[in-house]
Nucleic acid binder design. Structure first.
Length: 782
DNA sequence: TCCTCGTATGGTCGG
DNA sequence: CATACGAGGA
């Protein structure tokens, strides 16, 4: 990453300040280029570090922290905020390495949300919260809102809770409490929006709960209304660092400004070209306006890119140039040219997945005339998570190891949420939402009626649901089956709660809770194919408890951290969304699905027009700049969406790739031409012209085949002839063996694919020719 | 109260 | 295509 020549040149050309001289021996400074060094050494006053993709931003940030400490600043005087847990973790690790010791000493390095939780636990009473408030996730939030909508006699079909949730989130992102919602928004949600918002906040208060947006909103409110508290922290946090500043929303911006007002020692790092979170309230305006907000701010541009080849860089720059109102940076690199960005069109999404799979294997073996790359050096970045399926299907059938990053989250699985609900009630008995979730899970004969009874009693006596249930049980007001079962459940919670308070071993306790409540048993008795997997997940959950001191600590962690990173064994190809890829880099990157409507996404364009397209374009920029050596963009002419075949045109962003940095590939034998062959000798603009493509013979042929494929029963798919005997040689219930997944039982047959419940790997769909009878498994020399 | 089946309906992106 | 929900029967 670094070059000594550079530093020599710098030292010769630029007179060093005394401080720099004094710190000259510090190794973290020697590794920096001039711009990075300036950003690191300007400790006093506001600094905006405009850091392009791959310009060593994290390095500069961590060096700055190290430098602060070197100058005698204590770790707890530094407030360092990031957006994602991933970024926080990485920074912790890097700072730790700089200092050569544990970073326990940096208590205020974390995400906005994590830091706000910490503050709110201390000062929550100023907004009516007890310090043990619970944090609702999106699911809880929606269910709560739905209750309120129904209670207000509004048709929740026409006015869905989801819509209300995003409306309220939007207000919270803009730091608007119910009283502050502008009149212009009064007509929102059938003119009931503001009213429902206020009701929701009230409800949260009585539940002693907050949602994600509240974490910021409440802290801003406290800072604005309690000068003494604000001042305390202004004095405390002498130095503030903010990562990904382009992604801050208004509430976060206000929060930062309030804290930095006094000493103005704030260093914001960001890249306006990588602002991709507008949909959740991010305001690029915050970064564009920095110099106005903090007069006298020093702006440092990091423009030397250490990550990508010139072709990749130029392609990315070409695309992003289409955006207006940028701060503007000119990225450069001294690396060798390398490969051009590769562009290829496919017949449909499955072809695309097949081609990419083969390409990945070829690159792994090094048979493309290119450097060979292990699987963990390669990544597929998609726009929308549903695109991942095609790749998973394909990779499963060819046995290509992959991992999905940020896929369906572990903690969002039903069984995990259920188990967590038990833990939540055990820790805080008035967590009504959690109680409601599990009071009839497993089935205890508590139906709608019984639950309504409990809720009525809770309202009448102003108690939690648990206490209300206790009353009803002892008063004998619950009927038959429910009575004994609920009584038993309450006894259980009393016991478990006592155990929590006695600080008994929380891991054993968790197991006991799941055992005694009958929850584990419920899944053991369940005969659906998912059940074993769910039990497995529960074990996983128990294992996760090991790294925490107690249940409360664990619950807090889970509320804020939702990523799962169970990673076992060998190298794997990564599949993730473009959003999840921000901040990462890979030698080899595939960018599939560049079709208008998918990318840029139709929805984004419909909802936000030009602004939407610009954000999508930044997403394209982020995608391309993830690649170090080889970047391959592809699109498919046809894709099935909702089970319907739909044809699409290549993305407009493809037109924006500079011709001289792109190699147009043709996929041999796919559809005898198509885009690549339409006009091989002319320039790329023409070759890739969307109107031309639409009228080209290749396109027509694609259309025609698209029609026939909808109805036809193709005997040939994906260029491979299906072996009829392979299909018929397995029957439902057969024991079979698969090289990668091991032994399993055939649950169903669908053409050439078999639904198999593997003993170890769970339910999978696998092509028949990869399967042998279990009895014959030993004979096969794998 | 529970369970099953049918229908409708919807799919960015995350702390 | 997948899931979510409502209606209806056990």
């Amino acid at each position: 990453m670094s070059s000594f020549d550079e530093n020599d040149a710098f030292e010769a050309a630029v007179p060093l300040s005394q401080r720099a001289m004094a710190a000259r021996s510090a190794p973290y400074l020697d590794e920096l280029n001039p711009a990075q060094r300036e950003a690191v050494e300007t400790l006093q006053g506001p600094v905006l570090m405009l850091a392009g993709a791959g310009t060593g931003k994290t390095k500069a940030l961590t060096a700055r922290i190290a430098h602060l400490m070197n100058q005698g600043v204590r770790p707890n005087e530094i407030l360092a905020v990031t957006f994602t847990n991933k970024a926080a973790r990485e920074m912790k690790g890097r700072v730790g390495r700089h200092l050569g010791e544990a970073v326990e000493g940096m208590p205020w390095l974390g995400t906005f949300h994590a830091i706000c939780v910490k503050l709110l636990r201390r000062h929550g009473e100023l907004v009516g919260l007890k310090s043990n408030f619970t944090i609702l996730d999106t699911d809880d939030q929606i269910r709560l809102l739905k209750q309120l909508i129904v209670a207000a006699n509004i048709d929740d079909k026409r006015w869905p809770a989801r819509a209300l949730a995003s409306l309220i989130d939007g207000w919270k992102n803009r730091a608007l409490t119910p009283e502050k919602v502008p009149n212009a928004d009064a007509s929102a949600f059938d003119h009931k929006g503001t009213e429902l918002y206020a009701a929701y906040q009230e409800r949260l208060k009585t539940l002693n709960a907050v949602d994600f947006g509240d974490l910021l909103l409440h802290m801003v409110t406290i800072f604005q209304t309690h000068g003494d508290v604000l001042e305390q922290y202004q004095r405390w946090f002498r130095y503030i660092l903010v990562d990904e500043y382009q992604d801050t929303n208004v509430a976060q911006y206000l929060w930062l400004r309030l804290l930095a007002q006094k000493h103005q020692n704030i260093c914001c790092v960001g890249d306006d070209d990588q602002s991709i979170y507008g949909w959740r309230g991010a305001e690029v305006g915050n970064i564009l306006r920095f110099e106005k907000d903090f007069p006298g701010a020093k702006v440092v541009r990091l423009e030397q890119n250490y990550r990508s080849t010139p072709h990749i860089l130029a392609a990315a720059s070409g695309v992003i140039a289409g955006n207006k109102g940028r701060l503007g940076k000119t990225l450069w690199t001294d690396r060798d040219d390398g490969e051009k960005v590769r562009l290829i069109g496919h017949w449909d999404g499955e072809e695309e997945a097949r081609w990419i799979g083969e390409e990945i294997e070829a690159l792994q073996r090094g048979t493309r005339g290119l450097r060979s790359h292990e699987l963990d050096q390669q990544a597929i970045l998609v726009r929308a998570s549903h695109q991942m399926r095609a790749f998973e299907d394909r990779f499963l059938t060819i046995g290509l190891p992959y991992k999905v990053i940020g896929g369906p989250r572990f903690y969002e699985r039903m069984e995990i949420r259920d188990a967590m609900a038990y833990f939540r009630v055990a820790c805080s008995p008035d967590d009504d939402l959690a109680f409601e979730r599990i009071v009839n899970t497993p089935k205890r004969g508590v139906g709608d009626k019984a639950l309504q009874n409990i809720q009525r009693a809770a309202r009448a006596n102003e108690t939690s649901l648990l206490e209300a249930a206790r009353l009803l049980v002892s008063a004998g007001e619950l009927k038959g089956k429910a009575r004994g079962a609920v009584g038993q459940l309450i006894e259980g919670f009393d016991r478990w709660r006592a155990a929590v308070q006695n600080n008994e071993n929380h891991i054993e306790l968790a197991e006991i809770i799941l055992e005694e409540s009958g929850y584990t048993e419920m899944w053991q008795n369940d005969k659906t194919p998912e059940a074993p997997g769910r039990l497995e997940n529960l074990k996983e959950l128990i294992k996760a408890l090991e790294s925490f001191e107690n249940l409360q600590g664990f619950l807090e962690h889970v509320a804020l951290i939702m990523d799962n990173e169970a990673d076992d064994g060998g190298p794997k190809v990564s599949i993730m969304t473009l959003h999840a890829a921000k901040g990462l880099e890979f030698p080899v990157v595939f960018l599939p699905g560049w079709e208008d409507g998918l990318f840029p996404s139709q929805r984004s364009m419909d909802e936000s027009g030009l602004k939407g397209v610009e954000e999508e374009r930044r997403l394209a920029y982020v995608g391309i700049t993830r690649a170090e050596e080889l970047c391959t963009i592809s699109f498919a002419g046809n894709r099935r969406i909702f089970g319907q075949w739909q044809s699409a045109l290549p993305s407009r962003f493809i037109d924006e790739l500079p011709e001289e940095n792109v190699d147009v590939l043709t996929a041999p034998g796919l559809y005898g031409g198509g885009y690549g062959a339409a006009a091989p000798s002319s320039g790329m603009q023409e070759r890739m012209d969307r109107a031309d493509a639409y009228n080209s013979p290749g396109w027509k042929r694609m259309q025609a085949r698209s029609q026939s494929r909808q109805t036809a029963q193709p005997t040939e798919t994906k260029g491979l002839v299906i072996d009829a005997t392979a299909v018929s040689s397995h029957a439902k219930g057969d024991r079979v063996f698969h090289q990668k997944f091991g032994y399993g039982t055939v649950m169903g047959i669908e053409g050439d694919k078999l639904d198999i419940e593997f003993d170890k790997a769970g339910a999978k769909k696998v092509v028949a020719r990869f399967i042998v009878d279990a009895a014959k498994a030993d004979e096969i020399p794998f």
